[in-house]
Every structure is written in C-alpha cells, then in structure tokens.
C-alpha cells in the first residue's frame, strides 16, 4: 500500500506492506538511526517522533503514519550533534546503540518540559534503556546539554 507522510520536514510517498512496522519501513528506506532492540516496545532504541511525540517505532504500524508527521534522528542532526558531543564529553556514549533513541526523547522533552529537575528528566527518559553506562554519566551529559542550550 502507499502512504504519504511528512518525514523530517519533507513530504514522502512510500510503498509499504500493511503488516510492516514503522521501524522496518524506516530502516528499509535507509534511515538506520532508529535501531531494533527488543521487539516489545521495552527498550527505547527505536524511538522516533510521531506528530512530535516520542513513540517506539517497533510498535507503530507503518500504515498509521499516512497523513502524519514523523521525525527521526536524521531530521534533527544539529541537536543530535550537540547531544552526542555532550555525551562523548562525559564518556557516556559507550556502544552508542541507544544514543539516537535517547536523542529523540531529549528533543521531545525539551519541547514538553520547562527546566526539568533530575527527577523529571529520569522519569521522561525512563523508557530509554541503556546497558552500558549505568545512566549516571548520561545524566551528567543531559544536564550539561540542557544547561548549555539555554
């Protein structure tokens, strides 16, 4: 089936399978920033924005986004670079597999929350699991990124 939607600020027309997930369709079309992690919407590495809200793309049917707006890490490269630099400055990036998903959640959080405290940050990012870092260095990086962004 054909879907028409706004992907990273550009209207695109894609041929998809009705059974495909958004993650599968994105990766098949060369947008590999969103990763496959758990298949059950539990880990956050496939996070993208659907109508500006973070969603697990492994649990969103690709057909759903017809007529809607999808933003992936490929569409927020400036923020991704600044977040990536903040992470690397703390040694928090590690294997990097969860970083693009974290970037997407942070991009959404910045729009939704005003001056969040640590508790609010942890809560907002809770769905972005990381197995390498122990989270502490990520939190250091996120605080620095948010502080620098203002």
């Amino acid at each position: 089936m054909t879907i028409v939607f706004t992907l990273n600020d550009r209207e695109v027309t894609w041929e998809i399978e009705p059974t495909e997930t958004l993650l599968q369709a994105l990766r098949r079309n060369g947008l590999v920033g969103a990763k496959e992690g758990c298949d059950t919407a539990s880990c956050g590495v496939c996070t993208v924005l659907l109508d500006n809200k973070p969603v697990p793309s492994c649990a969103v049917p690709a057909a759903r986004v017809d007529g809607h707006t999808v933003t992936t890490v490929e569409g927020v490269q400036d923020q991704a670079r600044r977040i990536g630099e903040a992470m690397a400055a703390e040694g928090a990036d590690q294997c990097g597999y969860c970083t693009p998903g974290l970037v997407m959640s942070l991009v959404a959080m910045e729009k939704e929350l005003d001056q969040p405290d640590d508790e609010q940050i942890r809560s907002y990012l809770a769905g972005n699991m990381c197995r390498c870092s122990g989270y502490t260095s990520q939190m250091r990086a996120v605080r620095k990124y948010l502080g620098g962004g203002r």
């Binding site: 920033g33 670079r81 990536g84 630099e85 690397a88 400055a89 990097g96 597999y97 970083t99 693009p100």
Partner: peptide
C-alpha cells in the same frame, strides 16, 4: 586525558555503523 570517544558523535547522529546498518 578524558578525550571524547572518537566514534561518539557519529553514532549519535545515527550514521550507518552497526552490522545490520
């Protein structure tokens, strides 16, 4: 020195890097 990891930013940008990519 705590230098940034050389691949950190590229991975954050979502560039193709892992086996399936």
């Amino acid at each position: 020195k705590s230098l940034p990891k050389i691949d950190g930013v590229g991975l954050a940008l979502g560039r193709p890097a892992y086996t399936d990519d």
